[in-house]
Design a protein around this nucleic acid. Structure first.
Length: 466
RNA sequence: GGCCCCAUCGUCUAACGGUUAGGACACGGCUCUUUCAAGGCCGGAGCACGGGUUCGAUUCCCGUUGGGGCCA
């Protein structure tokens, strides 16, 4: 198996899924997964993008067994293959100039017919062809396509037929000696002994060309499996336009690699049963192309986020802490406090980024208070009630500062003031965290500790009096 | 334009001729509750259309429509 990206952009989620299926299939079938960089398109390929793709693959857990090979370093191979095909009469030189071809194309268009190369080069005598080439005349190398229907037996789509009339003798090598995409792909697939080609649907229409090439090359034809495209919410092929189409954008958005891996695996493949969260080992054990659907699928960020939350729910606290720490911009509390905070916020966050923010709230006092919250929970009598609460809380010694003792203090205060506990709970949460929503108040109070809680309460009382 | 692919809830999907068409995300309700989540329970929501084939079609075949791709 192989994954063969072109370094013309960062790793797209569609490409990532293709790589992922190749990987799972290779593991399942005990095959070898090869990475090959298709960088023969000099105008569009950029060196640094290769590194970007490699690191995105590594992050996602798409490890390969062999490679990366670079097509740009394998020109000798393509050259030798072209010469061999020429020698064997399976390919031929065509000497038309671009202008001539353009004229033919226009003529066909004017006649209302679809254009196909005339095949004129095919009729040039080999000796004559050699002589003209030797004389320095410019030429391209074209494959002599067989005059018969080409059948592609696709593992996902079944039998697909391409009538001979639809295909013409396509160019293998440009006049400057540059091998073209379809040619280098097949030469490499033969050389690397690729047995299964799993790739995007967009290549299905090119497959008859490849089949003809494999035959001309005298090589066994690999099995093909064409995956449906991944679409944006508007049902159009997913692209940068849709926002996050690149793997690294999801990484930066706080998506865990395991979650993205799992999500992508299920975008087109359905393991039996109702399971959605699968371990890597399960996927490698159970993956099968027979259970891969043929239709395109829409990439739903909502579900990805849900899956991310599922992974967060299952992740060991230490690991989650490690992943969240880089995002704790406002600092993080001591490790023991942080680990408890993790458990408090785990069901409330969907990314390590959000967890980082939650951790910071224990390390730094709120810099501001949610205006909506102030309006809603602060009444004229609130300040005095919070004063009373503070007095009671101050009466709790450090060693007895727990969720239970502080809750009792608050409820007693409320009762003494003749108001419901909620009248105190909400402003207190706002005082301690700056926001109106979050983990259960008394757990937060306990975690914050006596000193911090009282300090934040004092600041808030000052603030609402001002 | 020619050729090719695809078609089950809004979305991801299960079903491989006979099911009250199942699950998940999202949505709504209830529950839990100091808030927000998470969890639990409940609910609304789908076989694109038309012909065949068959005792029987979501399922097989053909066409239409709609999406998509490749070539130019």
């Amino acid at each position: 198996m192989r994954f063969a990206p072109s370094p013309t952009g960062s790793l797209h989620v569609g490409g990532a899924r293709t790589a992922l299926y190749n990987l799972l299939f290779a593991r399942r079938e005990k095959g070898t997964f090869i990475l090959r960089i298709e960088d023969t398109d000099v105008e569009r390929s950029r060196e640094e993008l290769t590194g970007q793709i490699l690191s995105a693959m590594e992050w996602l857990g798409l490890e390969y067994d062999e490679g990366p090979y670079h097509q740009s370093r394998r020109y000798d191979l393509y050259k030798a293959a072209a010469e061999r095909l020429l020698r064997e009469g399976k390919a031929y030189r065509a000497f038309e100039t671009p202008e001539e071809l353009d004229a033919e194309r226009k003529a066909a268009e004017a006649a209302g017919k679809s254009y196909r190369y005339s095949g004129a080069g095919r009729r040039i005598d080999p000796g004559e062809s050699d002589r003209r080439a030797g004389a320095g005349e410019r030429f391209v190398v074209r494959l002599a396509m067989p005059d018969e229907t080409i059948v592609v037996d696709d593992l996902i789509r079944g039998r697909v037929e391409f009538p001979a009339e639809a295909l013409d003798d396509f160019v293998l090598v440009r006049s400057d000696g540059h091998p073209l995409y379809h040619f280098s792909v097949c030469v490499d697939d033969v050389d690397m002994r690729i047995s299964h080609v799993i790739r995007g649907d967009d290549h299905l229409a090119n497959t008859p060309k490849h089949v003809a090439l494999f035959r001309a090359l005298g090589a066994p034809i690999p099995r093909f499996a064409h995956l449906g495209m991944i679409l944006g919410t508007d049902k159009k092929k997913l692209s940068k336009r849709h926002g996050a189409a690149a793997v690294e954008e999801w990484r930066d958005a706080g998506i865990l690699p395991e979650a993205l891996f799992n999500f992508l695996a299920l975008l087109g493949w359905a393991p039996g049963g109702d399971r959605e969260i699968l371990t890597r080992a399960e996927m490698e054990r159970e993956f099968s192309l027979e259970r891969v659907g043929a239709s395109p699928s829409v990439f739903d960020p909502e579900k990805l986020l849900w899956m991310n939350a599922q992974y967060i729910a299952r992740m060991p606290a230490e690991e989650l802490l490690e992943r969240a720490l880089p995002h704790a911009a406002g600092g993080a509390p001591a490790r023991d406090v942080a680990l408890r905070a993790i458990e408090l916020h785990r069901p409330r966050v969907r990314t390590p980024i959000e967890m980082g923010r939650a951790l910071s709230s224990y390390a730094a006092d709120p810099s501001e208070y949610e205006p909506e919250g102030l309006k809603k929970h602060v009444r004229p009598e609130t300040a005095a009630q919070l004063d009373a609460l503070a007095r009671r809380l101050e009466g709790i010694p450090e060693g007895e500062w727990t969720a239970a003792s502080t809750e009792a203090a608050l409820r007693e205060t409320a009762e003494a003031a003749g108001v419901s506990a909620g009248k105190l709970i909400h402003p207190t949460r706002l005082a301690l965290t700056g926001v109106t929503v979050g983990a259960p108040l008394f757990d937060v109070v306990a975690l914050l500790g006596r000193e911090t809680s009282l300090r934040r309460l004092a600041r808030f009382r000052e603030k609402i009096r001002a």
